[in-house]
Amino acid sequence: MLDAAYNRSQTVETDQGKAAGTEAAPIIEIDDLAKRFGSKEVLTGLRLSIRRGETICIIGESGTGKSVTLKHIVGLLRPDRGTVRIGGVDIFAADGQLQEIRKKIGFLFQGAALLNSMTVFDNVALPLREHERPPEAELRKRVLETLELVDMAEAADKMPAELSGGMKKRAGLARAIIRQPEIILYDEPTAGLDPVISSTINDLILNLQEKLGVTSIVVTHDMSSTFRVADRIAMLYQGKIYKSGTPDEFRKSEDPLIRQFIYGESEGPLRRDNH
């Protein structure tokens, strides 16, 4: 079942394992991104290049602009300054292309953002009904296959209000991948979930990366999840990327700021800054 769902997908490069991903060309390039909300300057010139097929985790304290960065990548927010290029196209330069670019992106929202007025099945079917309009039998098959992929087929007829937090995330993930996107953005995929469900979500992220070869950007401050799924970690601090490197480089880092964040220490530069 899994293979059947996966085999349909690929226009994107497949089997770019973690090692191969580090050598591929950038699919997303963020340059000098700045964004202010009122008097609060959230992003101050963020630069980040994401290679095709890699899984990058963006970590950082709450309120440092991780979700804001993701929303810029899909054009939900417009920057005060800077550019976001996806596949070489500046998404803010031509609105017409943004719609096309978005079709290649799946987005798992922090709260899943399922449409509460429709069942799980209809939520997952929505992108297909709007863009591809396949015959009903084919649509049903594809939706059920995708729900199977996230172990949610039995909940297809349930309404979002009847689902637990983990089930909502899995349904949201099914909706994000139903059209086999090239890029998947995850906004705090394990936030508010117990360790077992978090582990299931991490497995799903890894599965999708391995089987579909998708490029994944995971915004999180769950370090166990980060070390589990990341090919590369980028730490956001004061509106910019403070450090980018492999999980091993982060683990071995002697930088007090990084050590404090990844080991969750109460004393350190982050605490001093907040005071």
Binding site: A113, L115, P127, R175
Partner: peptide, 17 residues
């Protein structure tokens, strides 16, 4: 309004709807 604050409107936009 409820759809807006629960990010359902954003979800539609991201799905190019």
């Amino acid at each position: 309004g409820t759809m807006k604050v629960s990010e359902e409107i954003d979800a539609l936009e991201v799905m190019s709807i």
